[in-house]
Write a protein that binds this DNA or RNA. Structure first.
Lengths: 239, 239
DNA sequence: TCCTCATTTGTACAAATGTACAAAACTTTA
DNA sequence: TAAAGTTTTGTACATTTGTACAAATGAGGA
């Protein structure tokens, strides 16, 4: 099969700036801002200054291109997260540790730890968009690649907040990821609603704000202090 | 122009269950789960048990269909939110008031206040997906329709937490909306990560969890207790 | 130099897309 | 019932889509 040629050229591709790289980068950008289906192979080729045929040559299919983008980023980002998580776990003070854990989760999502310059935020935005679109390729990889790490983070947070049921920590970490995604997807909304006094695209500030808010949300008293199963409360929704 | 016939039949359409209604409903469902571009007019027609031509007849274009979905929901949801907000503002205790405001924001997003059964969550999910896809039609309507309400909520929250700079409240309400969106987009992730002990699709529980977490996040001490402009801190991101 | 291989190009094609429109079917009004 | 209206259908059409493939181009080793 022709994959042989692909894998041998893989190392070379990392070294010299190919069309292959340009295509990957352009596709990442376009997918992240417009979604998977709104972007055609021709759009990508044009943005990369390449021929449509080259896309097929390097990645076989459009799905293959998306897959390659994921493979390119998932490893480094997960590794970075795990490193930071390991360091955070060694923090003695429980409050400080919680904050360190949250930062370990958030930071790699904004700035990639690998050589890919500034790709972290772009890739995270891509993930946000793919998850919103319910993209099947993305769903499979994400569940395989990130669930272990997510569990590790949830467990670490649980250790620093033992009195809160694990299920509630899951909820809150889910909210954290949603907030993170949404900030990367529509940063201009923050600027608009704050009437210009905050810049949603300022990654540094976004991280600080998100960390502060998330730590507080994790520390909130549990809804259900004892049982692990859910209990209804004063909800008056009429669904 | 032929819009005259449309507006006269509008009232009738609301009364008897037309193809028009079926198409709207099917489109909403499909757009909300697959995104705008992944769904073809033919898909919608088939799901509604209608002919592709009927879609063109009633809504002229695919964009027109999306527009109609928004027009259908925005009014009622905003009205409901404002009612609940007005009630929340009358709560004396500041802590209770904050919680009431947050619920006033969240509740209508899960269950529509109008006659459209259970459409609230569906429509909110649709908005989440459209915002992720960067859909232009949606972006315009959303900014026009929801920004006033968003400002009203932000101001109300600010009143109940006067020591926190408004910009930080904007950040945190942004996070709230992101968390809300993400919960509606991928509820199964909550079930998976909690190993079945929480159900992300349970709207009642989601509301409780989200309210609890958000209230705590709003109450967090501000990053910058004095100046309204942002200050950098220990961020080590390398963008 | 020529040969070999990887890459890039240009073009082709079937399938799917949004939309248009005439004819048919159904409703309402007189 | 007949006429006038609205709604639904069926089909057609120009574009755009993802992908395939032969030819052209380039680079490296003998």
């Amino acid at each position: 099969m022709r994959m042989a040629s692909k894998s041998t050229s893989n190392d070379l591709a990392a070294r010299k700036p190919n069309l292959r790289e340009a295509i990957l980068c352009a596709a990442e950008e376009l997918f992240a801002t417009n979604g998977f289906n709104a972007v055609s192979v021709r759009d990508i080729a044009q943005a990369a200054g390449a021929n449509p045929g080259s896309v097929t040559y390097h990645f076989k299919t459009k799905d293959g291109l998306l897959l390659e983008i994921y493979n390119r980023h998932c490893g480094p980002m997960n590794r970075r997260r795990c490193e930071l998580l390991a360091a955070a776990r060694r923090v003695r003070d429980l409050q400080d540790r919680l904050e360190a854990i949250v930062r370990a989760y958030v930071l790699p999502a904004f700035s990639s730890g690998s050589d890919l310059a500034g790709g972290g935020a772009r890739f995270t935005r891509l993930r946000a968009v793919m998850s919103a679109e319910g993209n099947e390729v993305a769903r499979r990889i994400i569940a395989q690649t990130f669930d272990d790490t997510s569990h590790a983070f949830i467990d670490a947070i649980h250790e620093s907040l033992p009195h809160i049921p694990r299920a509630e920590i899951v909820w809150r970490s889910h909210f954290l990821l949603g907030a993170l995604y949404y900030t990367l997807v529509t940063p201009e909304r923050v600027a608009r609603l704050s009437r210009g006094s905050a810049d949603g695209a300022d990654a540094g500030n976004a991280i600080e704000q998100l960390a502060r808010a998330s730590v507080a949300s994790f520390q909130a008293p549990p809804l259900d202090p004892s049982a692990p199963s859910r209990r209804r409360s004063m909800t008056q929704n009429k669904t």
